[in-house]
């Protein structure tokens, strides 16, 4: 049975002055799945993530997205192909309103580049309806005209998700979506991720193995920059090397 791979890396390596943060990682993400990349602290998850989103350029190896080599592409251009990332710290535009935050993403998707400095802002009002619908979808209607800087942490994350969804990406890369969240927020975010995963592929980096247990179809465990194990939760959680890596790291 042929696997439908949307994102693949081969021999992905990132070296920082002699230290290999990511060492020959081979990763294959199947279309339409939720794939989790986990590992203890310092395993190279975030570096790996930054390589995939082109915020870092790998020292060796290739990255292919939809059978296209994107290894040398710029971050903004990868986003234009429908491969969109989130950030660990809630990434909003603090001095724009909630609606404007979402609209800026719609503006890119529907208008392309906006170098038209001579046109009035009015031309963007056509996007307001769709922006407000997205704002409502994440439960921020009451804050539509507030500045993003005034939102609480949880709401900023919701706004970030609405902004990302405005791009209607084919594949989402989530960087520790649950980082810094309380229990209730974790459940709510998990539901939100499951909801947006419909018709989309998601690759998420997570620190916590149990958080991704119910959510992911497939898990890749990284340790010291290399792939330690891969499979579904049942397989991975029983793997003695994984158990050792986690407990070893926990007691170090």
């Amino acid at each position: 049975m042929a696997r439908d791979v949307i994102l693949a890396t081969d021999g992905l390596t990132m070296e920082f002055k002699g230290f290999r943060a990511v060492n020959g990682v081979k990763l294959e993400v199947e279309r339409g799945t939720i794939h989790a990349l986990i590992g203890p602290n310092g395993a190279g998850k975030t570096t790996c993530f930054n390589l995939l989103t082109k915020f870092l350029i790998p020292t060796a190896g290739t990255i292919r997205y939809k059978d296209k080599d994107i290894t040398g592409m710029r971050a903004a251009d990868v986003a234009r192909l429908g491969l969109v990332r989130s950030f660990q710290i809630s990434a909003v535009f603090p001095h724009l309103t909630v609606t404007e935050n979402v609209r800026i993403a719609l503006q890119r998707r529907l208008r392309g580049d906006s170098f038209d400095f001579w046109r009035p802002e009015k031309v963007l009002r056509a996007l307001d309806g769709e922006a407000l619908a997205l704002v409502e979808a994440v439960g921020l209607s009451d804050f539509a005209d507030s500045l993003a800087v005034e939102l609480s942490y949880g709401r900023k994350r919701a706004l970030e998700i609405a902004t990302t969804l405005a791009l209607d990406p084919e594949m989402l890369l989530l960087d520790e979506p649950m980082a810094g969240m309380g229990h209730e927020d974790v459940d709510r975010t998990a539901q939100l991720i499951r909801r947006v995963s419909k018709d989309r592929t998601i690759l998420m980096v997570e620190h916590n193995l149990s958080v991704v247990a119910s959510l992911s179809d497939r898990i890749t465990v990284l340790a010291r920059g290399q792939v330690l194990a891969e499979g579904d939760y049942a397989t991975v959680s029983k793997d003695p090397r994984v158990v050792e890596a986690y407990i070893g790291a926990g007691h170090a």
């Binding site: 989103t53 915020f55 710029r74 971050a75 903004a76 251009d77 986003a79 234009r80 969109v84 990332r85 989130s86 950030f87 990434a91 909003v92 535009f93 603090p94 001095h95 724009l96 404007e100 609209r103 800026i104 993403a105 503006q107 890119r108 998707r109 208008r111 580049d113 906006s114 170098f115 038209d116 400095f117 001579w118 046109r119 009035p120 802002e121 031309v123 963007l124 902004t163 791009l167």
Partner: peptide, 23 residues
Amino acid sequence: SPFGQVLKAIRDNEPRAISLGYR
């Protein structure tokens, strides 16, 4: 202007603006 809107977004958070596809 639409341009000014993107400008303010880049001023506020450049990596995020890039991740939305703005060069």
